[in-house]
Nucleic acid binder design. Sequence first.
DNA 1: ACTTTTAATGAACACATGTTCAATAAGTTT
DNA 2: AAACTTATTGAACATGTGTTCATTAAAAGT
Lengths: 192, 192
Amino acid sequence: MKKDLRIIKTKESLRHALISLLKTKSIETISIAELCRLAQINRGTFYLHYKDVHEVFKEYLDVIVEDLRKSYEEPYYKTNYKIKDITADMIKIFHHVKKYQDFYQIIFDERIPMMYYYLLFDTVRTFMRDSIEEGLLAAQHELKVDYLISYQTNAILGILIEWHRQEYKTSITELNKQLFMIISIHDPFRMQ
Amino acid sequence: MKKDLRIIKTKESLRHALISLLKTKSIETISIAELCRLAQINRGTFYLHYKDVHEVFKEYLDVIVEDLRKSYEEPYYKTNYKIKDITADMIKIFHHVKKYQDFYQIIFDERIPMMYYYLLFDTVRTFMRDSIEEGLLAAQHELKVDYLISYQTNAILGILIEWHRQEYKTSITELNKQLFMIISIHDPFRMQ
DNA sequence: ACTTTTAATGAACACATGTTCAATAAGTTT
DNA sequence: AAACTTATTGAACATGTGTTCATTAAAAGT
């Protein structure tokens, strides 16, 4: 039950064409017709697999999200301090975003649909859930964890938005220092 | 140097037509041609004022952002506790979002461009800047405030995202209670 | 009221969108 | 290798997009 080679070929052609076009123009200005011409794919074939140009990009993005997930899994220099654990986890995200800066510049662009942001949000959110649940959950039984986790997750994404707005000029070391200071002020896990 | 009445009439017709169409279909599926037909405006005239359907919506949204700004200004029952001040400020935002729920449902939709999110982000961010700067700024001179403020702002928007995902079923009272608990855990301004 | 300014119109244009359908060719099974 | 399955193709169609331009008409200035 393997995938038909023709489908793979078609999708690859479209992905290559998109990457090529993205070097010179923004994703919003790329038409389906233009993409298909470059990929040498019939426009009708396009609609057999995708609804719009964004879906081609999104499929490519899945690879990047996978890298984010992987980079998060791999161990870092962990200490005994909870806060340091968190910043150590987040520094991995910063490294990842820097690595794929070209793509995150697109994801955070104001013309781009929220869907990419939510993709990132959901990915980071699963990390955040794993980080939090252990110590905190049991203590406050009136707390709806979903709100806490979304609060925490989006706070981190707020740093990424600010980073993006400052055109990624802040170094990762500096960014991590800032995050450490912010979390130190807030001291999220001092209860433990 | 007043605005030409014809322009006002054209823009009003388009706004009314958009509001009418939004009742039955999503903004993404509304074409310029369809909007102009309903508004009885020549399509060419549309392009004299707007680039796409979103710009019509965005102009309407400015009214809502203005309401957000106003509702934030008006005094609430303030106490001496900093945390309570913050949650009192934020409850105003919750009320505002609930009031314009129909619009925030569009703003947080995954197919909608980030631009609306940023509009909200920037508005809340100015509130946040005003709330924070007083006590905190001077103490930590190595802290880049921009990152702190974006972190704080987006954390709040994280709650709104979660609220949206839970289809605004959580009551404002409950939401405020959650926020109070979250901030109590983090205790952002215990230094003061 | 008359003149000036400028917004709105309709027609036309090349190109993009989204869909259909029979014909073809490429891949998979046997 | 032959028989099958199905992805791709090209053509066609109605509609949408973004722009232009001369004409019309409405508002503003005098």
